[in-house]
Nucleic acid binder design. Structure first.
Length: 911
DNA sequence: CCCTACCCGTT
DNA sequence: GACGTACGGGTAGGGG
């Protein structure tokens, strides 16, 4: 509660953003600015200022305090440009104050469990930001603040103290300003001596006297009854301070005076305890607090692991030598960071003059091409500036497979060049992919980000768009040259990292060659029957509308937005009073499984109508997205990414062709709209049979599973007969379904709880099933245990082909986080090996199609399935190639079985 | 226009 | 108290 009758505004408040300029002006005339922050007190403010439920990583680590604190600090750093910074922390355990008075601060509530784990994260973040954290056992952070504030003041510095503890008011002088949080951490009240006097009626150094009389609830220090800040201030003015008051205690009139006389000891104790030590013997000298800027790699790492997105951009300006802290880097700076050479960016003197020893860094988009012959020289050329002869020469250079080139996101360059009728060959490296392999769990693989991360150089993405601006000015050609130089420098750093991690072969022989395959697939696209799509669209919208009407009718005509989970919650749980479903952040879930569950417990026509509406709306939406994506050539061209899925899978977007429905009749009909294109004969699909189980059999070496696959009979029937001790022909459909769910769940780290839920079994029965399963397939259990253990020791998992995924959370002390990491560790080698296998198969298929001079082409990959569009007369050859190459993609201890289908559309081919 | 939350499609 | 991997993407709703 505010002890003042005045409004806070009277005390001279300022938002963080308007504190800056004023202080910046002042600090110009001083010997620097010292920023001192009370770490825990501000972290607490941040914690309570931001709803913890809205700030957590996907693995459930709460981050609200880290986020709020870091935001606040970033704003302070930006606005005040301090020359020196320190954040002081209280340490667990007692202090000299609790020794003196064990009940000191005794009324504080227990720390919320979500807060505690964020403290080390904040300290890590400070480390990344290059800010010194100080602490001292037996003392409070405030004592450190007081000590450093005094030293800074004596050194002639401007001092800013940021604390939510009112005791720090005593530190305020003409050159020491307190920023005290009013609300949250972004609204700080600025306490100068005048502001203190205006609010409390005393000078800052007298504030402890006032607090001793009034008491401090948060420190569990009682004051004199009936004495509030007004009375205390009046007494202090009248008697010149606490000593004067106590000397004249007998003369103080009234009830308050009597109370004072009764509480003299308490007041003296209060005063003793609220005095901050400003002459501590500190380990870290003032000079060591000098702010030298942040560490880019550490910032990236923190923002990655805490899943901060917008904050990253606000922190990077603090990177030492970063864009904000220093003039825009010149080309020299770019290359100096790698090998000391100096890049000379010049207009391309003619393509023939590009002499390349070793790999060339290259960059291309629709407007320009850049070539870096080495990290010591680069050219950039604006495509519009080329004359026909130059164009021919440059085109030949790009298409020359014997000229090794390294690019960043080379698939994009491939498309840009293709659009001009140029081929890109000889790509031996792609720094985007290299960076991904080095750590696939990071996000942000744009050139700027990778350069920042691995070269430690900040490049400005520029206001206009994606172009780099290294401060050299100039047009697209120059930019491309600069990018090429960066790529060349980056390759020198990343290549050894890839090799060190044992992924050289995977990189050179699998991922990089795959780029061209994917580029051709994207370029080819998939033909679509627009009329079929349009018909489906009408149907789905019709069903959607009817279901909506039905749903409204069930609500007596109330037209609630059926797409709004929020409104649905109101209807279901408030208005209809239905039983609560599983909890989610915003209340109770209305997802399909919850609605189905509700329909069992409390059948209502609204529920079935809602489910039907969801279904139809989703379908209509998918169809609409697809219809929109059909290009002028009547085909859909997705974009595959090799640098998104941390397991090594591909991803597909714009549109995503890897999640086209299949389970329902409507899904089938959507797939029927994907057809063979004009000039081609048919679609052939080939998919791996039970690829993940086969990989598990291989990796675990389980003789039972290996035997099952060798026998070639129905896997789940075989497994079921072993688990239930019956003959294969006596495995009931229910038994088969159970072992199937069990088998598939294994690779995902399924628990008995999850298995029980999926099979609608009691947990005990699910556990018994798991026990029976492992009794017969013990090597699988041993493998799964071992893979997690090994990953914990090594820090990473590995696929059959050496692809790594680093999983640091395996050693997390946070159980939820650790268990999520364990499931990742279980799954990554299996899913990742499957991804490796089909990628190897894709390379094989592409090679065979080329070598055998076939016109058929791969058009789609869906994780364990390949789709090829076959040219007339090539159907059988393609089928054989798919079988051969997918089969031969790996040498496992079980056969890799492939199912092939043929048809005029995707659904038909898929059966 | 951007962000988060929820929901849902695939493997 | 949570409780199966890996994704992309649409809509709602809140905020700038």
């Amino acid at each position: 509660m505010s002890p003042s009758g005045r409004s806070a505004r009277d005390a001279g408040t300022a938002s963080l953003s308007d504190i800056g300029p004023r202080l910046a002006v002042v600090s110009d005339s001083t010997k620097g600015t010292l920023l001192l922050v009370d770490g825990l007190s501000m972290a607490f403010r941040a914690f309570f200022g931001l709803p913890v439920e809205n700030f957590a990583t996907s693995t459930g680590v709460p981050t609200n305090a880290v986020y709020g604190f870091t935001t606040m600090l970033a704003t302070l750093l930006k606005d005040n440009a301090p020359t020196h910074v320190a954040v002081a922390f209280d340490l667990p355990g007692g202090t000299f104050r609790t020794e003196r008075l064990p009940s000191y601060k005794g009324t504080r509530d227990a720390t919320p469990p979500e807060f505690e784990p964020q403290v080390p994260l904040i300290r890590e973040m400070l480390d990344a930001l290059g800010v010194v954290a100080v602490d001292r056992a037996g003392y409070e952070a405030d004592d450190l603040l007081a000590t450093y504030a005094r030293r800074g003041r004596e050194a002639g510095m401007e001092v800013l103290v940021v604390s939510g503890d009112r005791d720090t008011i005593q530190l305020v002088t003409e050159t020491v300003t307190l920023l005290y949080p009013r609300k949250g951490v972004s609204d700080l009240v600025r306490f100068t001596p005048d502001a203190v006097e205006e609010k409390y009626g005393v000078r800052p150094q007298q504030y402890p006297d006032l607090a001793a009389l009034v008491g401090e609830t948060s420190d569990n220090l009682p004051g004199v009854p009936k004495v509030g800040p007004k009375t205390a201030a009046k007494w202090i003015a009248a008697y010149g301070g606490l000593e004067g008051i106590l000397e004249s205690a007998d003369d103080v009139p009234g009830v308050a005076g009597a109370n004072l006389r009764e509480h003299v000891d308490q007041v003296r104790l209060n005063r003793e305890l609220n005095h901050l030590l400003d002459d501590m013997d500190v380990e870290v000298p003032l000079e060591a607090l000098e702010y030298r800027g942040a560490d880019a790699a550490a910032i990236h790492q923190m923002c990655d692991s805490l899943q901060f997105r917008t904050l990253r951009d606000r922190l990077l300006p603090f990177v030492a030598g970063g864009a904000e802290a220093a003039p825009a880097p010149t080309t020299e700076e770019v290359v100096v960071t790698t090998d000391g050479a100096v890049a000379a960016i010049a207009a391309l003197p003619g393509p023939v003059a590009v002499h390349v020893d070793g790999r060339a860094g290259a960059d291309a988009d629709a407007w320009a091409i850049g070539v870096a012959a080495s990290s010591a020289s680069a050219w950039g050329v604006d495509l519009s500036a080329l004359d026909p002869a130059e164009e021919r020469d440059l085109g030949a250079w790009l298409a020359d497979a014997s000229v090794p080139k390294v690019l960043h996101a080379s698939k994009d360059a491939w498309h840009a060049l293709q659009a001009r009728g140029w081929d890109l060959e000889g790509v031996v490296g792609d720094t985007q992919i290299a960076a991904f392999l080095v750590n696939p769990d990071q996000r942000g693989f744009e050139l700027e980000q990778i350069v920042q991360r691995h070269l430690g150089v900040t490049v400005d993405a520029g206001a206009a768009g994606d172009e780099l601006d290294l401060g050299l000015g100039g047009g697209a050609g120059r930019t491309a040259g600069e990018r090429a130089a960066l790529v060349r420098a980056l390759a020198d750093v990343l290549d050894p990292m890839v090799e060190e991690r044992g992924m050289g072969d995977l990189y050179r022989d699998l991922e990089v060659p795959l780029v061209a395959v994917l580029a051709r697939m994207e370029h080819a696209g998939m033909a679509v029957d627009a009329a079929t799509l349009a018909g489906l669209q009408d149907e789905a919208r019709g069903r959607q509308d009817r279901a909506a009407e039905e749903a409204y009718a069930a609500l007596d005509g109330d037209r609630v937005n059926l797409a709004s989970p929020k409104q649905l919650q109101e209807v279901l749980f408030d208005r209809l009073g239905m039983p609560k479903t599983k909890k989610i952040k915003t209340g109770y879930s209305t997802d399909a499984s919850s609605l189905a569950e509700l329909n069992e417990k409390a059948p209502h026509p609204f529920l079935s109508a809602l489910l039907a509406h969801r279904d139809a709306a989703k379908l209509a939406q998918i169809i609409e997205t697809l219809a929109q994506a059909v290009r002028a050539d009547g085909r859909i061209h997705t974009t595959f990414s090799q640098t998104v899925a941390a397991t090594g899978r591909l991803s597909s977007k714009d549109p995503n062709l890897q999640n086209i429905p299949i389970r329902t009749p409507e899904g089938h009909r959507i797939r029927e709209a994907f057809v063979v294109g004009a000039g081609f004969e048919t679609l052939v699909t080939a998919d791996y049979s039970q690829i993940e189980m086969r990989i598990m059999a291989h990796l675990s070496g389980d003789q039972g599973l290996i035997e099952a696959f060798a026998a070639g009979e129905d896997l789940h029937r075989f497994v079921g007969s072993r688990v239930f001790h019956v003959a294969p022909e006596d495995v009931s459909p229910e038994m088969r379904a159970q072992v199937k769910a069990m088998s598939y769940g294994l690779a995902y780290g399924l628990s008995s709880f999850g298995l029980a839920r999926q099979l609608s079994l009691p947990v005990g029965a699910a556990q018994a099933l798991m026990d029976d399963y492992f009794a017969r397939f013990g090597a699988v259990r041993d493998y799964l245990r071992g893979v997690v253990e090994r990953a914990r020791d090594d820090g990473y998992t590995e696929t059959i082909f050496g692809r790594r995924r680093y999983i640091p959370d395996l050693t997390s002390t946070n159980r939820q986080r650790r268990e999520i990491a364990e499931r990742m560790a279980l799954n990554a080698p299996i899913q990742g090996s499957a991804a490796d296998l089909i990628k190897r198969a894709m390379l094989g298929v592409e090679r065979r199609l080329r070598d055998e001079r076939l016109a058929s082409r791969q058009v789609l990959q869906v994780h364990d399935e390949l789709v090829v569009e076959t040219a007339p007369g090539e159907r059988d050859a393609v089928e054989a190639i798919l079988r051969d190459e997918m089969h031969a993609a790996g040498d496992l201890s079980v056969p890799l079985e492939v199912n092939v289908g043929v048809g005029g559309d995707w659904r038909t081919a898929g059966h």
